[in-house]
Design a protein around this nucleic acid. Structure first.
Lengths: 203, 203
DNA sequence: TGAAATATGTCAACGACACTGACTTATCTC
DNA sequence: GAGATAAGTCAGTGTCGTTGACATATTTCA
């Protein structure tokens, strides 16, 4: 999700393996219907497929991370800073190694953002007590404040989606409720287009 | 999530506005308990807070996009290619403008990956019928195949999580089930650390 | 005690994927 | 024919991930 199925760049090789078919047939194999509705949840209206959920997850996640993004931008921070701040705030005394294990990034990447957060007084370090090689991480008051702000907007969206009327019980209802209200109509319009002759409508 | 709260880089200003407190107090304000368990879902065991869900969403999303990442790497593609391929596959005849609106990226960014996909025969273009300025996008057979492969792994994880025994009914149960099985224990161990004196344990 | 392992930090280079700004080319609309 | 619109492109930049190599404390162990 623009976030888009989100993405976070990944190391990527460079082999175009698996190529096997010709390349000019502009057709759709028609298969891939993927066993629709995995569970017995096909009670109500539209039988929501796994495919639909994947897509809704894309849109929901996009808006979910969009909230904090706006706040972070005011501070000159990015998502990487958010992640670090979040975990340090929630688990005070976290070591570098633990943080690396949680985030699954290299220490070079971590250090870049951690340096910003420490340099600007959002995070503080403290040598480990039993092992002085370690650097235990803590949020300063200012850091905890920012972390709380970021958590607040995400928790709000989550809470609204969980308490939304009616269909919050189904996965698709929950995900739709996570999407920014103004954009739900557009998403519904898009998804309704499935199967029908390509309507190539509006913009 | 490596993938992280996912990821997508964002344009960022550069003002450190809002600074207001001193910066050396290594304390935690203790507040931010955020109204735990929003809904009446506090039936069973641990009263899962919004904060916990935010964190679980991080881990779940990380693993959710990790599956396709591995496949994409074999083709020399990244997440940006995945997103384009996914939407073109699902909505054949999509125009550039529509795709830009869905992905929320600039046309320069879109063009970079679209050029790869078209050049390697995964996507084909076709001038619009009513408006020949448009370029309608379609997957080739090869493109549809790759899209199906990518959807398959994500749908599988989703289906497993939705049909997982017991707690798949609660949001936290569902999210935990979305996490790679091997890593659930580590996540539980981490989250159990909340509140308790910082255990700074293992790695 | 001294060698090896561990925890952290850092320099340098690079890749993926966003962004802005400016400009071109078709094509459609009025 | 003028102006708007759909798309493509060149050039530069920024965030955040990567690899590889190396430096520095500190702990552990033979």
């Amino acid at each position: 999700m623009s976030t888009t199925l989100t993405y976070l760049g990944r190391g990527i090789g460079h082999g175009i393996g698996h190529g096997m078919g010709s390349a000019d047939d502009v057709t759709r194999p028609g298969p891939s219907p993927v066993p629709a509705s995995p569970r017995g949840a096909e009670a109500a209206r539209p039988p929501c497929s796994s495919d639909d959920l994947i897509e809704l997850l894309f849109f929901a996640y996009r808006d979910f991370v969009g909230d904090p993004d706006r706040i972070l931008a005011e501070y000159g921070f990015g998502r990487a800073h958010h992640r670090v701040l979040h975990f340090v705030d929630r688990y005070p005394g976290l070591t570098i190694a633990e943080l690396l294990d949680i985030l699954r990034i290299t220490k070079q990447s971590l250090n870049r953002v951690l340096k910003d957060l420490i340099g600007q007084g959002y995070v503080a370090q403290q040598p480990g007590t039993s092992d002085r090689r370690q650097r235990l991480l803590f949020c300063t008051g200012r850091g905890a404040e920012l972390a709380a702000d970021l958590t607040r907007v995400q928790a709000r969206r989550l809470a609204r989606a969980l308490t939304s009327p009616g269909d919050a019980a189904t996965p698709e209802g929950f995900l739709m409720a996570m999407i920014e209200p103004d954009e739900r109509a557009a998403v519904r319009r898009l998804m309704d287009r499935r199967g029908q002759g390509h309507g190539q409508g509006a913009a």
